[in-house]
Amino acid sequence: MSLHPVDIVGTGETVLHLVSAVLMYQSDRGDVYATSHPVVPDAQHQGRKVIGAGVPLSKGALAKFADAVSAATAFAGFLPANLLFSSPNLIAWWAPAQVRMTWFKAAGSGKVAGHGEAAHPALVFVATPNDWFVFALAEDARPAPTTRLRHAPHFNVWDGGRICTGNVELPPTFGAEVIHSYENAFFRSHFTHPNRDKAVKYKGGIQRLWLDQLDSPDPAAMQRALVDSKETLQEAIARIAARTNN
């Protein structure tokens, strides 16, 4: 399980004292058991505290604790219209199809280099505190949980949709309020190299696709080139959430 820092914001100087601890246990089947422990002075070492004997945490107390954590970590603010899913450690949103200025930086014969306008399909982005992913959509419309995704036809994208960050600067904070910053980091970066075989269905492959797009943006040709990812939006989010929680 990965641990993430928590920011504690106060209006003045705030002193926090450790007073109790909750220990959680989980079986291989996913059963969860929790105990609550007071934090007490250590009789053998002055000034030090230890976790005392615990008592089982009831389902009601555990639910109350979970609600408090959820309230403290939930997004507070107006929801962006393109937001699809939000949890403390994962957000997903979609971007409509659009002809965009696109940059490539690659050397060698036959590789894409330079910049120009190119057609991009409708995309779904999924971001976690440490990673981000992108998928394409077969239609230029807001997807539902059961919508089947397509592989993003872009360079620098691995199987499973994970984006190779390279030297791209991601937003310093995580949450729905920085969706625009994530999109800028993706669309305004230099695409450098293909990361997967058979990324598109196009004569000449992914490099030819983008060279042709730079020569003359063609949204219909881009749409026809998309490859089925064999995952729905709901399935992709569940997979990425499980990866994040491990």
Rank of each mutant, 00 (worst) to 15 (best):
L83P: 05
A136W: 04
V134Y: 01
N89T: 12
N89R: 14
K59V: 07
V69L: 15
A72W: 10
P129S: 02
A71G: 06
P88G: 02
H154N: 14
Q44F: 13
A144S: 13
A144D: 12
K64A: 15
V134A: 00
R142T: 02
G116D: 10
V168Q: 12
T165V: 13
P145A: 09
W94Q: 01
A66E: 14
K105L: 15
L170S: 00
A63C: 07
M101V: 11
F78W: 11
D42F: 05
A113G: 11
G47S: 03
V69R: 07
T147M: 08
P38I: 06
P80V: 04
G114S: 09
A122L: 10
P121R: 03
G54W: 05
A118P: 04
G47H: 02
S86A: 13
V55P: 00
V50A: 03
T128D: 10
T102Y: 03
L123C: 05
P121D: 07
T73R: 13
A127W: 08
H120F: 15
F75K: 03
H115A: 15
T128P: 08
Q46M: 13
S70T: 14
F104N: 03
F135N: 00
F155Y: 15
N156K: 04
L149F: 01
A144I: 09
F65N: 00
H115I: 09
G52S: 02
Q98N: 09
P129M: 08
V134H: 00
P56A: 04
L170R: 09
P121Y: 01
V69M: 12
T102E: 04
F78P: 15
P96T: 04
A122P: 08
R150A: 10
E117G: 14
L57A: 01
D140G: 04
I163S: 00
G110N: 09
P121F: 04
N82C: 12
S36I: 13
E169C: 07
I51L: 06
G52P: 02
A95C: 11
A118S: 09
Q46S: 14
E117V: 10
A53Q: 14
N167C: 13
I163Q: 02
R150E: 08
A138P: 07
P80Q: 03
R148G: 05
A72N: 06
C164G: 06
V99F: 09
E169D: 15
F133P: 05
G161E: 10
A95G: 08
A66D: 15
V168D: 09
N130W: 11
V69N: 02
W158F: 15
G161D: 05
P129F: 09
A152L: 07
F78L: 15
H120M: 10
P96R: 00
N89V: 12
V124T: 00
P96K: 01
I163Y: 04
V112P: 06
A95K: 09
T73Y: 10
